[in-house]
Write a protein that binds this DNA or RNA. Structure first.
Lengths: 336, 336
DNA sequence: TTGTACGCGTTATCAA
DNA sequence: TTGATAACGCGTACAA
């Protein structure tokens, strides 16, 4: 009754169960390598002593922590919140836990966060996109920390993502098919952000194929305000009949600005989004956008990373995007 | 050049710098307890060897991990995504990192997640609300793991939260003042969820004070669909002129259902939300709701928990909620 | 199948 | 201010 208040250790359990510490360790980590009878004794001792393995000791001895790190720009962006949520749910329960850090879309902060996660013993990393100092990839290679990139696709790294260029291209083509010729784009900040850049470039390229160019392009920070302000600015040019947005939040902001400016959507102007997050369904009219399988992507990324950590070779997975035609698109006003 | 590929240790650094391992450790953890000259030598050695302390060994020897755990229902709910994001940003950089787990609103899963985080050496925990098996609190006490509760307020634990009952009460009073008498409520699931229950009870109590009761109450799972379906069901009763919703997502769903049913908001029916998340500003009309300082709450919770971990005694903080009157409320149709 | 004994890399105590 | 050395608690060859 007058036990030390400190926690029980393998030694305590071994003593109580009348076995060696090695056997206790086996019971916990490889139960099948122990005869049922002794296993029972040991587990009973574990329960009565309320034993929990010491994390630090375990990590030191086994050289793995069961911690997986993720660095995302911010969880305030629903896209990342959903992806990370799905990723976390797909981690083998009991075996892995998720350490998240946010970079605030800042490259330097991202680097620090990556270092911090590795310093915390992360067995593997989930990162967003490709754009980052090559030194980081070298460092990760030296440290032998496996990683998976998401929300993008590419050749040089293992990823679970999609083709931003192809996704936006489908949207631009649809807008062109509708008859629009005077089109503008509201893009997210492209510096150090290959997702935003891919969408902008993909849109420009598709327009170029049709011998056209944007009547205007605004590059703004993530948020409704940015989308709204950019829309108001762009629409000074009264010829514009369609505005392609780099993501749903910008599009929702643009939509709100349109309402406030007295413009009808889609009769007066077509507005399109990208991502298909929740809000795309509750604006009115509902947003025409590009669906990205965020949940599936999180799941695949988790599977992939766990494979890499287990030493298996991971095969990148390219997920499809899909055009979701809802209510914010229509032919330009003047068209028959 | 033919170095071992394994990482440098304190011993390597000590040898190269010509000092003892104790000094190396001091340079890294308490630089001021070392003379500048030797510190320079040591740091130089650290750099040339590209030394990083081994996490497991550090945790084992120091009995702390610098890891803080958080268990939230889901990051798909913007409320938690924002709160956790703010919480993480408020953690002392370099000193603490955030381990997140989600419970999916399931009590059993939450318990497992708490155990998993503690097993991973979490120095402290952020939990959502109060409702949980008392055994968990006992266990945490035995393990001496400090924790802070958020999104609720109460007496028995340290929290950084707000008064759900008071928040909804203000809203209900406003609706009553508008002249509504036939009111319904769409509540989130209350089982094991003191936030949802507090809002429901607070609303009922306020109505009771006015000698009234709800014409109908629906309790549904989180999501637009639930809100929409509940609204459609409730409005079978054509006398209802106002619907109080337990959160913004339910309200947005209800709003969408209203649109599809051909009901004008707020002319035909008043709909109110709770939380004031992003979507409250992009529905049309914009949502009348109760603002909760999610960001501030995350920050306060982080401060509080870090204090507790440092051994200081934390004082719970009760944050104010605020009525945000936007476009979804109006007097009932029949009123002069 | 089980036990012995050592190593893992760091922090912390105490003495110099 | 610095150094020697003992924990810290677990995993795992290797032996029995």
């Amino acid at each position: 009754m007058t036990e030390k208040t400190s926690h029980a250790t393998v030694d305590d359990v071994a003593r109580l169960a009348g076995v060696s510490t090695a056997t206790v360790s086996r019971c916990l980590n490889a139960p099948d390598r122990v005869v049922a009878a002794t296993r029972e004794k040991v587990m009973a001792a574990v329960r009565t002593l309320n034993y929990t393995p010491n994390f630090g000791a375990k990590a030191l001895a086994s050289k793995r922590t069961g911690i997986i790190g993720a660095v995302v720009p911010t969880l305030e962006n629903a896209v990342f919140a959903h992806g990370v949520d799905a990723f976390e749910r797909s981690l083998e329960p009991g075996k892995f836990a998720l350490l998240v850090a946010s970079s605030g879309y800042d490259a330097t902060r991202e680097k620090h966060q990556i270092e911090a996660l590795v310093a915390r013993g992360a067995d593997g990393l989930l990162l967003v996109g490709f754009d980052r100092d090559p030194a980081i990839y070298d460092w990760l290679a030296v440290r032998k920390v496996p990683y998976v990139l998401a929300w993008s696709s590419g050749e040089q790294h293992v990823f679970a993502g999609f083709d931003n260029q192809a996704g936006i291209a489908a949207m631009v083509r649809m807008v062109l098919d509708l008859g629009h010729r005077n089109i503008a784009m509201i893009s997210g900040k492209t510096l150090g952000n290959d997702r935003a850049r891919g969408r902008l470039e993909g849109a420009c390229a598709t327009l170029a194929e049709a011998g056209l160019a944007f009547r205007g392009v605004a590059e703004v920070a993530y948020g409704f305000e940015g989308g709204a302000a950019a829309f108001a600015g762009l629409m000074q040019d009264r010829a514009i009949t369609a505005v392609i947005c780099g993501n749903d939040v910008l599009a929702a902001g643009a939509l709100r600005a349109a309402h406030r400016m007295g413009l009808r959507v889609p009769e007066d102007v077509t507005i399109t989004g990208f991502d298909d997050i929740d809000i795309a369904e509750i604006t009115s009219p509902e947003l025409t956008t590009v669906r990205v399988p965020h949940t599936r992507m999180g799941e695949e990324a988790a599977r992939l990373l766990q494979d890499l950590i287990a030493g298996k070779s991971g095969e990148s997975v390219l997920l499809p995007t899909e055009l979701v035609a809802r209510g914010t698109h229509a032919p330009p006003a003047g068209s028959a």
